[in-house]
Design a protein around this nucleic acid. Structure first.
Length: 329
DNA sequence: TTAGGGTTAG
């Protein structure tokens, strides 16, 4: 069966893509059906490992949970407990088990409309790196009507990027009626990671000029990576000015990003300027990455004696604790 | 609640 792309998911007429297309079941039923019937690679494996973690969750083992004899309040408590557990699993990177718990909630007929952890659950699907599964959870939350929340849409956007579904992600972003800083950062970083560096920089510019949203350090970091990758000194310098103006030029990640950008663009003088203006700061001095960026930048630009000088300076300043990683003694 | 990180080597 052909799977329709979720391009027009804001329309009430388009609930039925993918999993739910031509499917008369309710979303929870449809998801259970799909998951039970799925052949490998299976979304959830009901292995012995599952029973181990299940033992920690009383409500999953309680037969009374099967929907009968439960008051509404106790059902809500179960939904809350399940949500917290899902959150924990996702934080631990245990995405499959997090999804399993949600599937159990559906099986037991818990009122998932009351579930308050959809961003977390959606994020778990990103860990599967499977665009088909991403579309399934998309259809599911769409039908539940929780996609009005920018947190949920942002999470879904992140899932599409993680799955490498660039078109889906971009089109989803373009159709978002409400965007926040995280939405912008997600798309800028997504474009950068997918190799569309100029697209990422255009998005950065559009964010400021067309939408009056002020980029934070996260957006600047992605944009800097894009500048380095395409060796665009013009954009890099512009970005440097922006970072200074925003007074975030002492951020350690941005400092190393700026030095790296200048070095990759062959502008050794400006890399030195950034490095020297910050290296006396106590917090910066102990950061081995900044020294490494500087030394490797010198080497890649053919400034070998400078590389040795900075290396010795680093040792003299008491950064010798990182020496064992460096010297093949 | 959601996004998000820098270097090198191989």
């Amino acid at each position: 069966m052909a799977v329709a792309r979720p391009l027009d998911f804001y329309s009430v007429h388009t609930y039925g893509h993918g999993l739910y297309q031509h499917n008369p079941l309710r979303p929870s039923e449809a998801l259970q059906y799909k998951l039970r019937g799925a052949s490998k690679p299976c979304l959830v494996s009901f292995s012995s490992k599952f029973h181990t973690f299940c033992s920690k969750v009383q409500f999953l083992q309680n037969p009374s949970i099967l929907g009968r004899g439960l008051s509404r309040n106790s059902s809500l408590d179960e939904v809350l407990s399940a949500g917290q557990l899902i959150k924990e699993y996702v934080q631990d990177g245990n995405c499959e088990d997090a999804i399993t718990i949600y599937v159990k909630m559906l099986e037991f007929g818990l009122p998932v409309e009351e579930f308050r952890f959809f961003p977390c659950l959606i994020k778990a699907f990103g860990g599967l790196s499977d665009v088909g599964k991403a579309r399934e959870i998309h259809g599911h939350v769409l039908k539940l009507g929780v996609l009005d929340d920018v947190y949920d849409v942002n999470s879904l956007l992140g899932v599409y990027w993680k799955c490498g579904a660039i078109e889906d992600a971009v089109q989803m972003f373009e159709k978002m009626c409400k965007r926040d800083l995280v939405s912008w950062n997600t798309v800028i970083s997504g474009l950068c990671h997918s190799g569309d560096y100029m697209g990422s920089l255009r998005m950065f510019s559009r964010m400021i000029h067309d939408h009056w949203v002020l980029p934070n350090r996260v957006a600047c970091l992605s944009a800097l990576t894009s500048c380095s990758s395409v060796q665009s000194l013009v954009h890099g310098r512009e970005l440097h000015g922006f970072v200074v103006k925003r007074e975030i030029d002492t951020d350690q990640f941005l400092v190393s990003g700026l030095i790296d950008m200048y070095m990759k663009c062959g502008d050794v003088k400006n890399a030195e300027y950034v490095f020297r203006s910050i290296v006396n700061e106590e917090s910066i001095r102990g950061n081995p990455v900044i020294w490494n960026v500087m030394i490797s930048g010198y080497v890649s630009n053919g400034c070998l004696s400078h590389a040795v000088e900075v290396f010795l300076e680093m040792c003299q300043l008491g950064c010798h604790q990182i020496l064992p990683q460096w010297l093949p003694l």
